[in-house]
Design a protein around this nucleic acid. Sequence first.
DNA 1: GATGAATGAGAGTTCATTCAT
DNA 2: AATGAATGAACTCTCATTCAT
Lengths: 187, 187, 187, 187
Amino acid sequence: MVRDQIISAAVRIFSRQGFDAAGMDEIAQVAGVAKGSLYYNFRSKSDLFAAVVTEGIDDLHRQIERILSRSSTVRQVLDGLVRENLQACQDYPELVDLIMRDQSGGLDAAAADRVRQARETYVQYIAGLLEDGMRDGLLRRGDSLGMAGAYLAFLHAFSRAGRARGRNLSDMAAEAADLIMGGLCRP
Amino acid sequence: MVRDQIISAAVRIFSRQGFDAAGMDEIAQVAGVAKGSLYYNFRSKSDLFAAVVTEGIDDLHRQIERILSRSSTVRQVLDGLVRENLQACQDYPELVDLIMRDQSGGLDAAAADRVRQARETYVQYIAGLLEDGMRDGLLRRGDSLGMAGAYLAFLHAFSRAGRARGRNLSDMAAEAADLIMGGLCRP
Amino acid sequence: MVRDQIISAAVRIFSRQGFDAAGMDEIAQVAGVAKGSLYYNFRSKSDLFAAVVTEGIDDLHRQIERILSRSSTVRQVLDGLVRENLQACQDYPELVDLIMRDQSGGLDAAAADRVRQARETYVQYIAGLLEDGMRDGLLRRGDSLGMAGAYLAFLHAFSRAGRARGRNLSDMAAEAADLIMGGLCRP
Amino acid sequence: MVRDQIISAAVRIFSRQGFDAAGMDEIAQVAGVAKGSLYYNFRSKSDLFAAVVTEGIDDLHRQIERILSRSSTVRQVLDGLVRENLQACQDYPELVDLIMRDQSGGLDAAAADRVRQARETYVQYIAGLLEDGMRDGLLRRGDSLGMAGAYLAFLHAFSRAGRARGRNLSDMAAEAADLIMGGLCRP
DNA sequence: GATGAATGAGAGTTCATTCAT
DNA sequence: AATGAATGAACTCTCATTCAT
């Protein structure tokens, strides 16, 4: 209970201010608990950050895996990948900003490693799906790992820009899917 | 002279550690000047950061504009855009990381605004090139501003991933250009 | 039962780390009870410390009084005094370190007073024995209270130094008795 | 200048409250400088403490060495040793309390080591003088190192007790010299 | 009688900033 | 123009203490 309050306050504060600029005082205040409770539940600010990001990535990963498991064709999987990642950008913008932004600055080594590992696991999952598509013949062959990371960055940036100007999700999803799958050039 | 030493030390330190984790002491030391000199040349840490980023973006902008001005067709411009942005990621990785990473955390409002504006100017320049391509009929119509930002993020992420695994630039440029222009799907 | 576990854990922790550096958490853990139990049995950390030290001094006092009561001559009493105090340094080194070290730093006023009083009572008991010796004509006349405190400090320091280099007790006792009774100068 | 203010404030505060209970805030206030200045001149609280104690011991050591160098006989050296150590207890009571009290509690390992080393050097110097006396035939043979530490503890305790009751120094010095050299037993 | 999650005042430490030189 | 000793507000983290169970 208290732990959950802390996590969700931390998502908000960390995503708005970044790791270094965020203050434990403010997180405690937003969570509605005493400062000491942060340290009763997490070893350090770095540890809290790592918990927030890795749990966020894991949730996202599980949710997308569950949804994509319903798809029967490779094409459906890839369309779903774009749509669900954009959806996550829309539904949990703060968490996704947090996951995508490089925060390595003040994190201690252990926490930075946990975060890197969690991110890598997710990117490798996406890369695996792209490799399925390549084997299937649907996708152009290439550096699947680089693509996976780059397309996530693409979707995140595209979503932020669209959101800033109030675009609705389904338009953006359609356009993003076209750009990613079909490319920038006119067919 | 001193100013240039400071700027180039600041690029290095800021890009490695982020705005908040970077220390004025370390910047002074790397620049080989006394800490007081930083404040003789720049009003504050935020001001130094804003100077570094805006000057970096402006240099990049000018350089790319100059190179692209030699292109005669829209197609050449767009290919050059991809190639030159990747080239910049390769040649000035620290500066580009600095430009792309969101550092809004600890910056004061004025500096954050200058940075945002400089970034926006560059993104709008790219968006203008994309609109040329759309008018020309070469490119799919769409949210040019969103695309410009998203493709920059794509290139940056793709470049980082490739660099981490030692890929050479021209391979990456060719692959990136194919992905961006032609899409992920097999032709 | 629980109280005894706490006391003996507290002796260990306090003597190793000093009052301030010792933690209630660690005492509870070593005692094998929950932290709340410390506060069920003692009003505060200061109170626990005062209990440990005063009870330790009282035990020591009683034990030495009992042993010395068997002596029939003043000379025997004084030899026994040296031997038994050294013995205590050997048998309960942690407790004796705790008693001898000035811990007034973080103690609250009430606890500091209890500790001071217990120490004083013991020193006055020793001073009384010295005065018996003076009246008896065996000992040089002088500041019995000052001597009592100073000889305890002497024995404690001598014992620590000897223990650190593995000297055995009876050698040390003989040497200490000679030094105290006969002085540093060769007879 | 500022460094000296800090050192002398630190002697006062540390000796009154002990290492752990002393606060950097209070030291800064007593020194009449800002808290940051403590950390500009010393790496940490432990470092400040180690500097205070080691410099204090070294000063004491040098001063006593200088004074004893005027003595021509072993007997004079030993009398001087007692008198000068008592004098130091009288002149710099806070510093001597600080040196004699075991503060190992919260000190970090490096600082604890520096302190231990400085203390040991001084005790070994005293032990060397005692060995001179033994070789000379004036002193009873025995554990010179243990004696050196024990007699310092004796003098310190004797001085504190005397001072608490307003005894004057020369009486105490004469009595202490008799006790140490001639022993407790009546000649 | 015993627990341990929760607390919050206060600790040591950092670091952007200033200013006399 | 350039310096660096000095600053103090703000930070992360600790830990004795409480209280509902």
